[in-house]
Design a protein around this nucleic acid. Structure first.
Lengths: 126, 126
DNA sequence: CGGGATCCTATGGGATACTG
DNA sequence: CAGTATCCCATAGGATCCCG
């Protein structure tokens, strides 16, 4: 381990609230550009890799990594169909399905915010 | 209509859906390590800069930038009190207050997920 | 089809020092 | 008190090539 990494570990005495605070914990799952979008698309049902790829304009490698993360975190299940040609589907697990509550809230607020953006056209948001 | 034209229409070539899709739009606001946490702390009422600093173990510069972002995006309002010593408070705007719906959903799911993590101890999540 | 491996860049975020 | 400025690094994510 190099010096910098060692220092970071040593200094990490600060309380990491992952697994303790629901907001910190959720944040670590929601971080990144694609998690919410993937979860959103899978919320309606299982999808194959290339189908996800087509729905979200994302690089293959990136999608692959993100799906592995979500699988590791327990939100997504990867299913390989044994019949015929290679066919893989991704679907939400139980805890992944529960996330739809968050997705619904995000959708509602997102629409409110889009409306807000239009009515405050002068302000340079983003 | 010929086939190629139909396909070009159907396939949204790299369009940025910010301001169009509520999920993409929300994601751009929620991205980053601190936005959700800041919003959560401000949801209960206005807070001063150093008070936020104390509640979340974050670097000053980082907090400053994040607050500027949220202010720019219209979720947070910065209030400078003119009396006596320098005193600044941050509070949620109307559209920021509406975000509490998302925060509530996140809190609920976060707690479910924490429970899920405990009952699946063998899996190395994160 | 469904990826993995590799390389590269952009940027988020921490540490530190300084300021009105 | 409430920042700003600067430097630096770790990581996310895109592009490209390759594979079973």
């Amino acid at each position: 381990m190099d010096t910098q990494a060692a220092q970071r570990v040593a200094h990490d005495g600060g309380a990491d609230l992952f697994g303790v605070c629901p907001f910190v914990t959720s944040q670590s799952v929601l971080q990144g550009k694609w998690a919410i979008l993937i979860l959103h698309h899978l919320a309606e049902g299982p999808l194959r890799f290339n189908e996800l790829l087509r729905r979200m304009d994302v690089a293959q490698g990136t999608l692959s990594k993100q799906l592995k993360n979500l699988e590791h975190e327990g939100l997504v299940r990867r299913i390989v169909h044994a019949d015929g040609p290679l066919r893989v589907e991704y679907e939400l697990t139980d805890i992944g399905l529960k996330f739809r509550g968050v997705l619904d809230a995000i959708e509602a607020w997102g629409n409110d915010y889009i409306e807000f953006l239009r009515t405050h056209d002068g302000d340079d948001v983003r």
